[in-house]
Simulated scan of single mutants.
Amino acid sequence: MRITRISLITLLVISLIFFFQQNQDPGTLKQRLQQSLDSHFPRLQVPGVSLALITPHQHEITLTRGVANVHTGEALQPYHRFRLASISKHLTSVLALKLIEQTPLMLSDSATDYVDLGPLPDSEAITVEQLMANTAGLYDYINGDNDFFSRALDNPNKRWTLNEILSYAVEAGPDFAPGSDYSYSNTGFYVLGEVLENATGQPLSQLFEQFIGKPTGVHHVFPDDFSNAGIPVLDLAENERAYEYHRDAIGAAGNFVGQPLELARLGHQIYNGNLLSPAHTQALLKPTPFNEAYGLGTRLWNDYGVVHYGHTGTLSGYKSILVHIESVGVTMVVAANGYAKEGEHWWDLVNTLILDVVGHYDANLIREDTAA
């Protein structure tokens, strides 16, 4: 039987409609992600995992497995909050850029214009931009060889001061001269938070609500500057280490808490240029001269040919990641209230979910060397 030209066109249109509908359907993607989460969850051996995703068509997907509270066994729900750990660095950097747009603060300002860095060598040469890019050369008190954690764990309600945090950097000395190299530094982001507070006269929590929360409508992502075991965070997905020390011990480097869906909503607005100016949105994603995988408070990845960016978080038994997958316009958050028994199992889950998303929209974007 001969197929007419009209029939061929009709078949093509039907095929395109089917393809379009399949790739617009969040239910199909949700099923795919659920299968991957179910497959990987047992190997993680964590209390719970929460996933939230915003599609390029503004559909929202949430998935959870496991428990939200290791003490009560309460089932994990999308509304539960997680400690975001170092994703805080990304959020603080976004806040800094927003303040630069709306206040006299500038990237080139010296940190010492706003914060007394005491006897820290070359402190006047440290700029706001260097703090955000991890190029200020400040010794990392969290990952360094010192007594910080023993002191913090021995007194979980202790309120820390900037001078106490800086004492570790002063004692250890700088990693390098400001602006001459890259070194991941929690100290640098702690100082950045102090800079923002002193430059405006407002605490970080108020600044974030005023300049980020209100413009975006996101109110379930915030700096935790108050909690302890006696003053808990509402709806926190609680593990055994949830209140092991007061969060002002880590400050802007890691004290944010958030619902995964709200964080994904915020990320989606950031990466689609709805919050910052085009120049500042791009500034987040511009690699430093010394590390092509880090911008301004932003981790940059290109795995299996898939460009994505955002930040990771690891602290106090919480693991999280915020990513925007550029090629398909999807923003995703994965959070756990426990560390995977084997670290690679966490990344197996995250990478599988990213590839699920890309494969749903355009399998051609994935290189042939993709891992199984």
Rank of each mutant, 00 (worst) to 15 (best):
D38E: 14
V195H: 07
F222C: 01
F208K: 03
T298W: 07
P289R: 11
L33K: 05
Q206W: 12
L207F: 10
V94H: 05
K158C: 09
S123F: 03
L95Y: 04
T64C: 11
L53F: 09
G305W: 14
A172C: 07
Y304G: 08
G137E: 05
L12G: 08
N157H: 14
V115S: 06
V195A: 08
R83F: 00
V333T: 00
G230P: 02
L300P: 01
S108M: 05
D362M: 08
N186M: 02
G188W: 04
S227A: 13
H90V: 03
N69V: 00
G317H: 01
A249N: 06
T127K: 01
L296E: 04
P47S: 00
G258C: 12
G317F: 03
T216D: 07
G173N: 04
P287V: 10
W160I: 11
E326P: 03
V94I: 14
D25R: 14
L95V: 02
G213C: 04
H220E: 15
Y339N: 07
L53W: 07
L8D: 03
I6E: 14
S320Y: 04
T288P: 05
S7P: 01
D116L: 08
L365V: 10
R5Y: 12
G359W: 10
L105H: 09
P104L: 11
S36I: 09
H360E: 05
Q102F: 07
V128E: 02
I17L: 14
Q35G: 12
G267Y: 08
V358L: 12
R32A: 12
D235I: 09
V128I: 13
I270G: 01
L153P: 07
V307T: 14
V46T: 11
A363G: 10
A242E: 05
L63A: 08
H220P: 04
L266C: 06
L8P: 01
L120W: 09
P223A: 03
L355D: 11
A85V: 00
L91V: 03
K319G: 05
E74V: 14
L37A: 07
F82Y: 08
I87G: 00
H40M: 09
L95K: 10
T135H: 06
G254W: 00
V70D: 03
V221R: 00
T161E: 15
R367W: 12
A237E: 01
P223I: 00
V13Q: 06
M132D: 10
A85Y: 00
F290M: 02
T10Y: 06
Y168H: 03
L97W: 04
A111T: 11
Q35E: 13
T127E: 04
F149C: 08
L11V: 13
T312Q: 12
R83Q: 06
Y139F: 15
P289K: 10
G258T: 10
R2S: 11
L353Y: 09
Y190C: 02
Y361F: 14
W347K: 08
P203G: 06
D122E: 10
A68Y: 00
L276P: 06
E60M: 11
N143E: 15
G193T: 00
Q77K: 15
